[in-house]
């Protein structure tokens, strides 16, 4: 099977986010990593490759720093990758990014299955995978928590639903699956894996290379720190002291213990 995984590098969400000019976050204090859901997608792709043979290709749109995490996926076992390093693409909206990912997948050619994460932790859009499927004119399944296939072509999938329900559905590839967390336990790269990753092929592409002509259909206005009118009463003091005060408040103020 030839499987493409769309992977985005995102900030570690425990970072301190400082907003510059209401427009973007200051990246100097931020550590980057693979979007959590995409890590599950990489693992799901590697497991299919182990069973059915073939290759796993990583496609990512992002600045140069994203190469570190594309190579992280290589170290897990992905074979090669395409890095769309063009700011006109990765600074575009989901429509522009999906258009470029779809073109990249067409350029790679002969792809049996595309996997994305359910959503990015930074943008939380949950639209890119569905758009890519529509642009490639193939079926899709979102929130996939189980994949069954005997031949890498016909798939039986579990789609997560609300209230602990799963929809069991059939589709025939090529298709796009958006992968939900918990579907597997992503592997950690091994030392030989990390060594091999350094030599794996990573093609840099611009929007023009891929023939992307899309422009954004939405406009960003500003970003801000949410203000809450139900902000917690923060109990100050050293941990032991704060803990004692908390217990007192729970007993005598909230009267819940």
């Amino acid at each position: 099977m030839k499987i493409v995984v769309c992977l985005k590098q995102v900030p570690d969400m425990e970072s301190k986010f400082k907003i510059v000019d209401d427009k973007k976050v200051d990246e100097s204090q931020i550590a980057f990593k693979i979007n959590d859901f995409d890590n599950y997608a990489v693992e799901a792709a590697l497991q299919l490759k182990e069973k059915h043979g073939g290759e796993v290709v990583i496609v990512s749109a992002g600045p140069d720093r994203a190469a570190k995490d594309i190579r992280q996926a290589f170290a897990m076992g992905a074979d090669w990758g395409m890095h769309i390093t063009d700011p006109a693409i990765y600074e575009g909206d989901s429509f522009v990014i999906a258009s470029a990912l779809a073109k990249a997948i067409e350029t790679i050619g002969g792809v049996d299955l595309v996997m994305t994460g359910v959503q990015t932790e930074d943008l939380q859009a949950a639209v890119t995978g569905v758009m890519v499927a529509d642009m490639l004119n193939v079926p899709h399944c979102t929130n996939v928590v189980k994949i069954n296939t005997a031949d890498g072509k016909a798939f039986t999938l579990n789609r997560e639903l609300e209230g602990g329900l799963n929809e069991v559905m059939d589709l025939t590839g090529p298709a796009v699956l958006t992968i939900q967390s918990g579907i597997n336990e992503p592997r950690y790269p091994t030392l030989p894996g990390i060594m091999k990753a350094k030599k794996k092929q990573l093609d840099a592409k611009s929007g023009a290379d891929l023939g992307v002509s899309a422009s954004s259909r939405t406009a960003f206005i500003k970003m801000f720190v949410p203000v809450s009118d139900t902000m917690a009463e923060i109990i100050a003091g050293a941990p032991a002291e704060a803990a004692a005060k908390l217990v007192d408040k729970l007993k005598n103020e909230a009267k819940v213990i």
């Binding site: 425990e14 139900t230 941990p239 032991a240 704060a242 803990a243 004692a244 217990v247």
Partner: peptide, 30 residues
């Protein structure tokens, strides 16, 4: 331990600290 964690926007009481230091303190006072 992250003062900017969104959970503080909906909590009644919050402690910004390492939970591994706070929980023993809670246990000791119960």
């Amino acid at each position: 331990k992250d003062p900017e964690a969104p959970i503080f926007n909906i909590a009644t009481y919050g402690i910004v600290a390492d939970l591994f230091e706070v929980v023993p303190g809670i246990m000791a006072n119960l």
